[in-house]
Design a protein around this nucleic acid. Structure first.
Length: 515
RNA sequence: GCGGAAGUAGCUCAGUUGGUAGAGCAUAACCUUGCCAAGGUUAGGGUCGUCGGUUCGAGUCCGAUUUUCCGCUCCA
């Protein structure tokens, strides 16, 4: 475990030193858990996106891609449930260090008073027998009325305070009610703080006209609100999917572990619209298919595992994660969720628009069910980087640090190197560089000894090095060095592009979808 | 969010009881060598995380703050 921590630190240091990931705004001391992707990091990230996009959109005739806006109508987040679920006033007890939802503490307190009322009522009931008028008793008994007034007072005060965003008064209310921590039994509370997990901002430049809007906490809703548009304009027939890659924002209380948990992150999502009742068939299909995609990147199978959810979110009736063995243990990388008709049904209700599909085979209209695959791009990036990072001890005892990316994902595909910086070799190498750079991300390097240049390329994971030597000038051949084996082949200049292209071919081919 | 540790050049670090900063590697230029990193010469690069305090004087002592790491907590 300690070794893994050391390794993880080395990976983070390597990522910064070689231009993959930088702390954001570093010259101003950085921002907690915000990172920028550097010159090689952004290449790697783009390559992962492209590999996913091709696998989902290009290779599946019934899946199309969109790119929806980060800003969405505020009601979207009411329909999705995020406004309710992501807005909690929280308070901590300083002695037990336990955190509570302030509204829950107050509700519990109210419930206790209600219990007292019920006790009084049932006591009176048994005393007066059949002649007992419960409603009358509730309205007239002084003790019950007192309790009821107290409850009404608390509720009014709480609702007023919450509406006015007056968290100080919520705290005061908790103090006035002498609520104690169930664990420590003390009344030593912190201030009440609003943990709104959605970032908000204002739209509209004149202050009276502004609307509070949110940065999307997930990309999925952008797909659901475009369900009709895509279905109609694309003449889509169920089953079909809509894919999207984009940023999402969550104001996590604790964001840590490098780029694993960030407040601004990127998702690659696909929502697959299906006939109600067929969700388990598709759940199994996409579970297997997504795992096949991961394995096609050449990572060992034991690095991955499924984790089936026992506790399901409000929108799901089946859910599984694909977890990856990061340096800090198995963690979620992708989720496959059967979301039923929760999302489209909810948007149908809130928008008043019919979000339905006419199924000619069944001759009926229905709200389609949704099967979601949602993968964290930053987490996939981290998985690739962690797994690629290798320190090799060579025969002569020196240590080689090499990033063994799958070639299709490598930031730089090939580097052209003149063996020495004279005798016309740089000119020849430049010619080859100019020939290759329109097809592949390439570099040219003539500084320092050749061995050292190879190592520099190893450190950023370049799979192929093309070396121009004196023989090149005679017969138009070069050597091509393979990163992992360090072996070299001599090939003709005219063949370089084709040979690299061969080796960059994708290994993922989708399994035919079920009937 | 709570507790602990740390922050000196791009990287790894040194800096003695407070006296206004050093090394190696890296980077750039030139020379030399030429197939698996560290030959030579020269140069650039730091208001010692930030702000404030004590002091004639602070990288060094004190306080606050920020960032990172570790543990706890939290987590659709």
């Amino acid at each position: 475990m300690a070794n893994n921590e050391e390794l993880f630190k080395k990976i983070i240091a390597h990522a910064k030193e070689y231009g993959f990931v930088f702390p954001s705004s570093e010259i101003y001391d950085g921002m907690s858990a915000v990172y920028d992707y550097g010159q090689y990091g952004s290449e790697l990230k783009n390559n992962i996106k492209q590999y996913w996009w091709k696998a989902m959109v290009q290779y599946n005739e019934n899946i199309v891609g969109i790119d929806s806006a980060i800003f969405m109508h505020p009601t979207v987040w009411k329909a999705s449930g995020h406004v309710d679920a992501f807005n909690d006033p929280l308070i901590d007890n300083k002695d037990s260090k336990k955190r509570y939802r302030a509204d829950v503490l107050i509700e519990d307190h109210v419930a206790k008073i209600e219990d007292k009322i019920e006790k009084e009522v049932s006591k009176a009931k048994s005393r007066f027998g059949e002649t007992f008028d419960e409603n009358m008793y509730r309205k007239t008994n002084t003790r019950v009325v007192e309790y009821q007034q107290k409850i009404d007072g608390i509720k009014t005060r709480f609702v007023t305070a919450m509406d006015a965003n007056d968290l100080v008064d919520v705290k005061a209310l908790i103090e006035d009610l002498e609520i104690v921590c169930p664990v420590s039994g003390s009344r030593n509370w912190t201030e009440v703080r609003q943990f709104n997990l959605m970032f908000s901002t204002q739209m509209g430049s004149v202050s009276e006209d502004t609307n509070q809007i949110y940065l999307r906490p997930e990309t999925a809703q952008g797909i659901f609100v475009n369900f009709l548009n895509v279905m109609k304009s694309g003449r889509m027939k169920i089953p079909f999917g809509i894919a999207q890659i984009g940023k999402a924002f969550r104001n996590e209380i604790v964001a840590r572990q490098f780029i694993f948990r960030m407040r601004e992150f990127e998702q690659m999502e696909m929502q697959f619209f299906i006939r109600p009742g067929e969700e388990m068939k598709w759940f199994e299909y996409w579970k297997n298919e997504r795992m096949r995609w991961h394995l096609s990147l050449g990572m060992p199978a034991e690095k991955y595992r499924f984790h089936d959810h026992d506790k399901l979110a409000h929108y799901a009736n089946a859910a599984a994660d694909i977890e990856f063995d990061f340096a800090f243990g198995f963690k979620e990388m992708e989720g496959i969720h059967s979301r039923t008709d929760f999302d489209l049904g909810s948007h149908q209700k809130f928008s008043g628009k019919k979000l339905q599909y006419f199924d000619p085979e069944l001759n009926e209209n229905y709200v389609p069910y949704v099967l979601e695959t949602s993968i964290g791009l930053d987490r996939t990036f981290l998985a690739m980087l962690s797994h690629a990072y290798t320190e090799e001890t060579l025969e002569d005892g020196t240590i080689r640090t090499v990033l063994k990316f799958p070639p299709v994902l490598a930031p730089v595909k090939a580097t052209v190197l003149p063996l020495i910086k004279k005798d016309g070799l740089p000119e020849k190498a430049r010619e080859i560089m100019d020939m290759l750079k329109f097809d592949y991300m390439c570099q040219y390097d003539e500084k320092d000894a050749i061995g050292r240049r190879y190592r520099r390329q190893d450190a950023i994971g370049t799979p192929y090095c093309i070396t121009v030597d004196h023989q090149t000038l005679e017969d138009n051949t070069v050597t091509i060095r393979e990163r992992d084996s360090m072996k070299q082949d001599r090939i003709g200049i005219a063949e370089i592009s084709r040979i690299i292209g061969e080796r960059l071919k994708t290994h993922y081919i989708p399994t035919p979808q079920p009937e």
